[in-house]
């Protein structure tokens, strides 16, 4: 039984392991504490041309990612589940074509920017994917894990790298042992009632 379990696990484990280069914890000290509901927020590129908010940003992009994102997850999931056999060295399809060194793919948020920090060759495609997703909308760690179809532990390591690089920041959810503010709880109740 035990042997079998390990056999089954080996397939899914290898790729994430390689992706983090063997790290199971982030090198950014606090990132391993990243809560599942911590929101990852893309920081404005320091050198970018959109310091004043959003002027040069191609605006067709933001509305699109949401529905497209969901669809993509589902699509990718289907692909992953149907086609990836641990014995079969299928490439990770969605990211393989996006090499960081290449010119940024057209149609993404990076379009109109002369110098995007995402061109940094040290970033893996998954890093870039995270930043792009977060530029479209703040996403929780759990949502990113689902979008990327990666284990939460791996996503934490990747987010840690991005924190160190100053490309994203994360929110700190309400600390445990401390209930959120009463007014917030009331807001939640009212919000739920309005559903």
């Amino acid at each position: 039984m035990t042997d079998r379990w390990f056999d089954d696990a080996a397939g899914p484990v290898v790729r994430p392991y390689a992706m983090t280069r063997g790290r199971t914890r982030s090198t950014a000290g606090d990132a391993e504490r990243l809560d599942l509901i911590a929101l990852v927020i893309a920081d404005e590129p320091a050198t970018g041309s959109r310091g004043a908010g959003r002027e040069p940003r191609p605006d067709p992009a933001p509305p699109a990612p949401a529905p497209a994102g969901d669809g993509r997850v589902l699509g990718r999931r289907t692909v992953a589940l149907d086609t990836i056999d641990p014995m079969d060295p299928v490439d990770p399809p969605p990211v393989a074509r996006r090499e960081p060194g290449n010119a940024p793919d057209a149609g993404e948020a990076a379009d109109g920017e002369a110098e995007d920090p995402l061109d940094d060759a040290a970033l893996a495609p998954e890093h870039i994917e995270i930043v792009k997703l977060c530029r479209a909308a703040d996403l929780s760690v759990a949502e990113l894990a689902t979008e990327l179809d990666l284990p939460v532990g791996v996503v934490r390591v990747l987010i840690g790298d991005l924190l160190e690089a100053g490309l994203v920041r994360v929110t700190r959810p309400v600390p445990p042992a401390e209930l959120p503010d009463v007014s917030i709880l009331r807001e939640v109740i009212n919000g739920l009632r309005a559903l």
Binding site: I37, A38, I41, G53, S140, T171, P173
Partner: peptide, 14 residues
Amino acid sequence: KRARSAAADPVTLK
């Protein structure tokens, strides 16, 4: 516009 400070960040609960 993007949140500039931690205080303005969205609150997430679970």
